[in-house]
Design a protein around this nucleic acid. Structure first.
Lengths: 165, 165
DNA sequence: TATTGTTATACTCTATAACTATA
DNA sequence: TATAGTTATAGAGTATAACAATA
C-alpha cells in the first residue's frame, strides 16, 4: 500500500519505486532543499536567495517582482525592506512615473547572487552527476518542456481573465 | 548572456532553452507552486500540507517528524500545536517510554490529507499531460534515480558522522 | 478614478537557548 | 547524564485592509 501521491519525503526507506507524481514532488523537495541549505550557508532565507536570483540581470518594479515571486505587493515591500537593510538591494525611481519603484542589486547583492547561484549549480550538478550524459540531456529537455507548457497554460488563463484589448 | 544558474522563474519570456540546473530549479518551483496553491485552496500552508502527507500511513514521534521535515524539534512543536488546534492531528503517548510523543492524523486530518494529495496528483498529472507516455515513464525513472542517489549520499554522510556501532 | 507602493495588523514558520520530565 | 519535548523569545515571511502619492 501507500503507492500514490505521497507529498512527502521517502527518507532512507526501502527504495520503493515512486510514480511520476510522487517522483516529481520528491524531486522538487530535493532541489528546494539544496537551495535552502545554500541560502542558509550565506545566512539567507530561501526567498531572499530567490530574490537575488531574479534580480540578476533585471531591474523589476515592485509589482513585477510580486508577480515573479507570486507574492502580494505588501509582502514584497517587507522583503525588500529587509534586503535593503542588509545592503543587498536598492530602491530607485525615475521622473517618468514617480509611483514606480525599481529594485536593483547593490555590488554586495550582486556578489552574493553570483556566488549563491554558482553554489546551487555545483550542488545540483553533483546531484545529477550519477546520470549518464544522455539521461542528463533528456532530463533537461523534459524539464524545459514542462516549464514551457506551464507558461503557455498560464498565458491562456491570463488571457481568459483579461482579454487582449 | 544570462544562461547559467538562474534560480528564478523564466516568466512568459522568449522561451529560451534552460540548462539542466536551471531547468530542475524552475521545475521545482513549478511543482512547489502547485502544492502551495492546493494547500491555500484548503486554507492551509505548504508545510501543513506536507505534514499531512507525511502522516498518511505513519505515526512518527516528534523527533522523527523533525527529521522528515528537516526542522528543529521546537519548530515541530509549534507546527503540531497549530495543527492540533485545527483538529487535524493528535498527540499520543505509550507507557513504554513516557518521553516520546507520537503524532497521528484525526479523521478530519485524514480526509484533508487524502483530498489534498489527490488534488496535487490531479494538477501534476495535468502538468505532464502534454508529454507522450514514453517520456512520462522516462521522467519518472529519472526522478527516482536522483532521489535514490541522494538518499545514498545522505546515508554515507550520516555514516561518516556516526559510524555504525 | 485607477495604479503603485507602504503601513498596520495578525498569523504562520523558524531557530536558539533554556527549561521540564523521563530514562 | 542523556534523551524527548516544550516554552520563551526574536525575527522572517505572508496576506488583508486601509492608506498616501501619483497619474
Amino acid at each position: 500500500m501507500r503507492k500514490v501521491n505521497e507529498v512527502d519525503q521517502p527518507e532512507e526507506s526501502a527504495a520503493e519505486e515512486l510514480g511520476l507524481v510522487d517522483g516529481l514532488v520528491q524531486l522538487s523537495f530535493l532541489v528546494q532543499g539544496v537551495i535552502s541549505r545554500v541560502a542558509a550557508s550565506y545566512d539567507m532565507t530561501p526567498v531572499q536567495m530567490r530574490l537575488l536570483g531574479i534580480l540578476r540581470g533585471r531591474e523589476p518594479a515592485m509589482l513585477e517582482l510580486a508577480r515573479y515571486l507570486n507574492l502580494d505587493k505588501s509582502s514584497v515591500s517587507g522583503l525588500i525592506d529587509r534586503a535593503e537593510r542588509r545592503g543587498l538591494v536598492q530602491r530607485t525611481t525615475t521622473p517618468v512615473d514617480k509611483r514606480i519603484i525599481y529594485v536593483t542589486l547593490t555590488p554586495d547583492g550582486q556578489r552574493l547572487a553570483d556566488v549563491g547561484a554558482a553554489e546551487v549549480g555545483r550542488q545540483i550538478n553533483a546531484l545529477v552527476s550519477g546520470l549518464p550524459e544522455g539521461a542528463r540531456v533528456h532530463l533537461a529537455a523534459l524539464a524545459n518542456q514542462l516549464i514551457r507548457s506551464e507558461a503557455t497554460v498560464r498565458d491562456i488563463d491570463r488571457a481568459a481573465e483579461k482579454p487582449p484589448m
